[in-house]
Design a protein around this nucleic acid. Structure first.
Lengths: 227, 227
DNA sequence: CTGCCGTCCGACCGATCGGTCGAAGCTCGA
DNA sequence: TCGAGCTTCGACCGATCGGTCGGACGGCAG
C-alpha cells in the first residue's frame, strides 16, 4: 500500500467528489465537532447536494470515520519512521515529538480534529463498527510508539522514573492541545511563512520542555517535588 | 450538598431545580458537547420537562454559559490563592499546577467541559453576549495567572527562556487533557479512594515534569534541541 | 376565600436533522 | 444506437431540534 502508482489510481478512481467531501468534512468537523455539523452543510460546501453525498458515504458516521481514518493515517505515516532507528531514547523522543508536531502543523485542522476524537469517542459507546475498531487500533499503535520510547528511557535510566502510560497522555495532550489552541490555528489558516517560523519555534520549545522534563535529573539539582 | 454557609443561602434561594439542572447539564455537556445534547435530555434527566427548564434558563446557550461560568468560577477559586504569596516562581508554579489539578479532579466532568470550552468557543464566532464576555474574562484571568508566573520565572532566570504565552498553552493543555482523557475520567467516575491516590500520583508526575522541564538547565547537560 | 405569583407541564410551532427513493443526466463499451 | 452503470439531484420521510404559549397546580398575603 505504498507504491505511488497503486494509491494514485485508487484515490483517483474514486472520483474527485469523494476527496473534496473528505477535505470539507475534515475542516467542518474540526471546527464544530460531529454533532455540530450537518451533512447538508458538508455536502453543499463541497459543491454537491446532500443526496449525492450519501451516494459516496452510507451515513454520517461512516463519513466521520473516513475523515478520522485519513487524519490518523497521515499522523501514523509521519510517526512510524521514528520508531525503529537507533536506541538512544532521548533522540527518539525528540524525533517522535518532532514528527507529531509536523503532522499537526501540516493541516491546521488536524490538531482540533484529533483532540476531539481523542476524548469524544466515549460519546458513542456503542459503535463496534469495523471502521471504528480500525481507528482505535491505529490510535493504539500511535500511542504505543510513544509509550515504548518512554518505557525504554525509564528502564535505561535516561528518563526519570515516571509512569510512561500517564506521561504519554501528558505529552500528547500538551502537543495536540497546543496546536489546537485558537490563535495558533488562526495563524496557520492565515499566514504561511510566518507560520512556518512559528512552528519551528514551538517545536523547539515543546521538544526542549519534555527533553528536560523527562531527563533523569543529573543530581545536584535539589528540586524535590515534595509539597 | 456541602457547605451550610452564606453562599448556600444564595444557591438555595434559586430553588433546587436550578441547581439540579446545572449539575445534569454539566455532566451531559462534558460528555457530548454543546451540540450533542438536547435541552429535552437535560430537562428530563434533571427530573422536569423541557418547558420548565426554559423557565429557569432563557435558552440553550444561556444554560451552557451558566454551566461554564460555574466551572470556571470553581477553578478560579482554587487558583487565585496561588497568585499572591511568595516570590519564588518554582514554588508558585508548583502550587498553581497543584491547584489546577485539584480543580480538575474535583469533578470528573470539569476537565472535559473545560477542554471543550477552551477550543470550542471559536465555534460560535458571533456571541458577544454579556455572559460570554464574562466567561472570556474569567478565562483570561486564569491564564494570565500562569503567564505571570512563567514570565517572572524566565525574567529571574529561574526558568529557561521560553515563550511564556506558548508554554501556558502547553501546561494547560497537558494538564487538562490529561484529566479529560478517557480511562482516567472513567476511573474518577467510578472509584473514590483509588482515584484519590491516582490523583496524587499524577499530580506529582505532572508537577515534576514541568518543574524539571522549565527549570533553567544547570549547565553541563548538553541537550541541544537542534535538528 | 380570593387573588397573586412562581413553578410546572402538555401541546404546539417552524426549522432542521439524518436518511431514502426514483428519476433524470452522464459516459462509455458493445 | 442502445442500454449499463455511475453520479447527481429534488422531493419527501419521520424524528428531533430549540423555543413559545396558555393553562393547571400550589403556597401565601390580603
Amino acid at each position: 500500500m505504498n507504491d505511488p502508482s497503486d494509491r494514485a489510481v485508487e484515490s483517483q478512481a474514486a472520483h474527485a467528489s469523494h476527496h473534496k467531501i473528505l477535505e470539507v468534512a475534515e475542516m467542518l468537523f474540526a471546527r464544530r465537532g460531529f454533532s455540530g455539523v450537518g451533512v447538508r452543510e458538508v455536502a453543499e460546501t463541497a459543491g454537491l447536494s446532500k443526496s449525492s453525498l450519501f451516494h459516496h458515504f452510507r451515513n454520517k458516521v461512516e463519513l466521520y470515520e473516513a475523515v478520522l481514518a485519513r487524519v490518523l493515517a497521515r499522523i501514523e505515516d509521519r510517526l512510524s519512521p521514528t520508531l525503529s532507528d537507533d536506541e538512544r531514547c532521548r533522540e527518539r523522543l525528540d524525533r517522535w515529538i518532532d514528527a507529531l508536531i509536523d503532522a499537526l502543523a501540516e493541516h491546521p485542522t488536524t490538531a482540533r480534529l484529533l483532540l476531539r476524537a481523542l476524548f469524544e469517542d466515549d460519546d458513542r459507546p456503542s459503535e463496534p463498527s469495523a471502521a471504528g475498531k480500525d481507528l482505535q487500533a491505529t490510535l493504539g499503535r500511535i500511542i504505543e510508539g510513544l509509550t515504548g520510547i518512554l518505557a525504554a528511557g525509564v528502564e535505561q535510566g535516561v528518563f526519570r522514573a515516571v509512569s510512561s502510560a500517564h506521561t504519554v497522555q501528558t505529552v500528547i495532550g500538551a502537543t495536540v492541545y497546543h496546536f489546537a489552541s485558537g490563535d495558533f490555528g488562526a495563524e496557520l489558516c492565515g499566514g504561511s511563512l510566518v507560520a512556518r517560523d512559528a512552528v519551528r519555534q514551538r517545536k523547539r520549545e515543546v521538544k526542549a520542555l519534555f527533553h528536560h522534563g523527562l531527563a533523569a535529573v543529573p543530581a545536584g539539582a535539589g528540586a524535590g517535588g515534595a509539597t
